[in-house]
Computed example of a mutant assay.
Amino acid sequence: MWKLTRPDNQHDKLTRDNLLDLEDHRLVRIESVQEDQRQVWVLTRRGHGEAKKLLEPKGIRVSVLREEKYDPVTGELLGTGYDDHAAAVTSTAAELHRAGIGHRLGFQTEIGHRLGSGFVQRADLVVRAPAAGVPVMLLEIDRRTEDAHDLVQKLHQYWEWGRLLPKDADKRTVELARSRPDAIEHVDHEKRLWRRVYPPTGREGLVPVAFVFADTTEVKVANTVAVLEEAGRRYWAPRRYDTLYPKAVTARDYRQAVPVVVTTLEQLQEHGGGAAVRRCGGVAAAGTGRRADADGRARQPRRPRPLPRPGGPRRHGGQAAPRRAAGGGAPGVHAVRAQVHRRALGGDHRAPDRRTGRGQDRVRPVPR
């Protein structure tokens, strides 16, 4: 937490003193202690109410209250298994803040996105850093406690949420969206629900999603990314433009896709803003603030034209074709000059047939 609140400090003494003072006023409490002796602090009910009064008038949403519940038989605190995940989320926010991405008040946790079915998909972390070129980004932190297909399901739910309309949408837009399954793709993003919640991203597509893996190996990350790219291709992959010249237009349409990037918490802790980031369908790039695709479109590489061979063009047998002499043809080839015979525009230009008397076409020999 001290990396997020006091990134310039070399130790956490000042942050710890502030937490102890808040604990004396019953605003925070220690929920658990990790194996590395790190303490997980959460807001109490009183502190949660004070935070809402302070932050919600400024447009900052406060996460859900972590209630203090104990097992009636053993007396152990319930819900402590989530503490490792909460620590990874806080560490991710701290490393992004140290890299210059996002203000300390620009991070929000457990932000819900309600789907049409009533299900609420909660993002682990929401980052808003317009100064760093990231107006908004949804982050999912995974300690490899979730199956890869569960992450694909989350990506699908974010894609579905980006296609919803607000409740007060005009009747014409609603009728257009209900006319056929893909009709929502013809509705501008400014009329959709996600534009009521988040600012424009500055690029094509829906709200970008980042998957951050923590406490795992490179092999597991590679296997998970392979499943994301294959099973989730419908949600992140671009499409061809609907044009009459599909071979001439090589650009891709990202307007209905969810931009997806992948990195690890260890990369953020070691390299900060220069951490290796991989984009689904693309290549790994260094720098979390960079855009893997500048214009949001992937272009097909053009085939290089073959260079001319020395000695002129080749024949089928591999021998060089004889060069044409100036003012004449190649040796052994007779040039034939065609003579044009002009005729009058009117009248019959066919010679009469001796048997029928009717005109017929006659080919005049070319005089030599």
Rank of each mutant, 00 (worst) to 15 (best):
A86P: 05
A87C: 13
A87Y: 10
A88S: 15
A88T: 09
A88H: 08
V89N: 13
V89D: 09
V89M: 14
T90R: 10
T90K: 08
T90H: 09
S91E: 14
S91C: 09
S91K: 11
S91H: 10
S91N: 10
T92G: 12
T92S: 09
T92A: 13
T92H: 06
A93P: 09
A93Q: 10
A93N: 06
A94W: 04
A94Q: 03
A94F: 05
E95W: 12
E95L: 11
E95H: 13
E95K: 08
E95Q: 13
E95M: 12
E95G: 03
E95R: 08
L96F: 15
L96C: 08
L96Y: 10
H97L: 04
H97C: 05
H97D: 01
R98Q: 14
R98I: 09
R98Y: 08
R98G: 14
R98F: 09
A99G: 11
A99E: 00
A99C: 03
A99D: 00
G100H: 02
G100L: 03
G100D: 02
G100Q: 03
G100I: 04
I101Q: 04
G102C: 04
G102V: 02
G102I: 06
G102F: 04
G102S: 05
H103G: 14
H103V: 08
H103R: 14
H103S: 15
H103C: 11
R104M: 12
R104I: 12
R104K: 15
L105K: 07
L105A: 09
L105I: 07
L105C: 07
L105R: 08
L105W: 11
L105G: 10
G106H: 01
G106Q: 01
G106C: 02
G106M: 02
G106V: 03
F107K: 06
F107V: 05
Q108E: 13
Q108D: 08
Q108P: 07
Q108K: 11
T109H: 14
T109C: 10
T109M: 13
T109Y: 10
E110M: 05
E110K: 01
E110P: 03
E110D: 15
I111F: 04
I111C: 02
I111M: 14
G112H: 00
G112Y: 00
G112K: 05
G112T: 04
H113M: 03
H113D: 03
R114Y: 03
R114L: 06
R114N: 06
R114E: 14
R114F: 04
L115H: 02
L115I: 00
L115R: 00
L115G: 02
L115E: 00
G116Y: 00
G116N: 06
G116K: 04
G116M: 01
G116T: 02
S117V: 00
S117F: 00
